[in-house]
């Protein structure tokens, strides 16, 4: 892990006004929504109105889009790698910087939402659901950061977002294909169709986990050890995407201001 790479990543984000505005909106939007909800429904006063942990994906996207690709586009990656930094260290630092920054932002937003709920209903202050949500957010941030680091290592600039959109499209297509096979008259009866449904389901579930790397921490705390499988999937996702990212970058030639 290289401290300088981490700090550079954070500084670069700070200099991007559009991302800062989007981060601010992401922080404020749920607060506005819950304020309206509290005004409309008195029952909401006794509920811990916190955004689902999935919102952490948006924070990770803001921090992680083009995390390596922009350096490739500007040509600064060749300058960075001219210093005594290995690609392994560079990739891990980028991943850690994105994951940590997104986690801090996501947790901070959660903290504010929870504090507002606790002001209206003090008994909610020690609700463990809040901490579970926080832990899930941190895990999602690091998971998504690993995936974005991989996408960003494939292409320059912000083209990784296009790859992400392509993956979403692929998921929609595969889900639709499974549904057609399942509900098409006689679709289930054929052996080939049955096999296609099984393989398609495994494939679609894999994509879902990549897009939403959530480990249900609450389940694990409650003693539901079946969810260890999702913890295993999470570890797989992190190691595989970081490995792929390193593998891809070690085989690339970097020239100054290539694009």
């Amino acid at each position: 892990m290289n401290r300088a790479v981490c700090i550079t990543t954070w500084r670069e984000f700070k200099s991007n006004k559009i991302r800062l505005i989007m981060l601010f909106l992401l922080f404020v939007a749920p607060l506005f929504q819950y304020t309206v909800q509290r005004c409309q429904s008195p029952e909401s006063m006794t509920q811990d109105l916190i955004t689902p942990s999935g919102v952490a994906i948006a924070y990770a996207l803001l921090w992680g889009a083009g995390v390596i690709g922009r350096e490739m586009q500007h040509g600064t990656i060749s300058l960075v790698l001219a210093r005594p930094i290995s690609i392994v260290s560079y990739v891990l630092s980028k991943w850690f910087a994105v994951g940590l920054a997104a986690s801090v932002c996501a947790f901070q937003a959660l903290l504010v939402e929870h504090l507002i709920s606790a002001v209206f209903c003090p008994s909610l202050a020690f609700d463990p659901e809040f901490l579970v949500n926080g832990a899930e957010r941190v895990l999602i941030c690091f998971g998504t950061a690993a995936f974005l680091t991989f996408l960003s290592s494939l292409v320059s600039g912000l083209k990784d977002l296009a790859l992400l959109a392509g993956l979403l499209f692929l998921h929609s297509i595969s889900s639709a294909a499974i549904q057609i096979l399942e509900y098409f008259p006689g679709g289930r009866s054929g052996n080939m169709a049955e096999q296609a449904i099984h393989i398609g389901t495994v494939f679609a579930q894999g994509i879902v986990f990549v897009l939403y790397p959530c480990v249900p921490v609450g389940y694990l705390i409650a003693g539901n050890y079946n969810e260890i499988i999702s913890l295993l999937s999470y570890a797989t996702m992190i190691t595989v995407f970081l490995s792929l990212s390193i593998f891809v970058l070690t085989r690339k030639e970097f020239s100054y201001a290539a694009e």
Partner: peptide
Amino acid sequence: TRYQPVALYVVASLL
């Protein structure tokens, strides 16, 4: 700069 983390690859493959 371009060394390969074999241990990481092995762990990732196994997982």
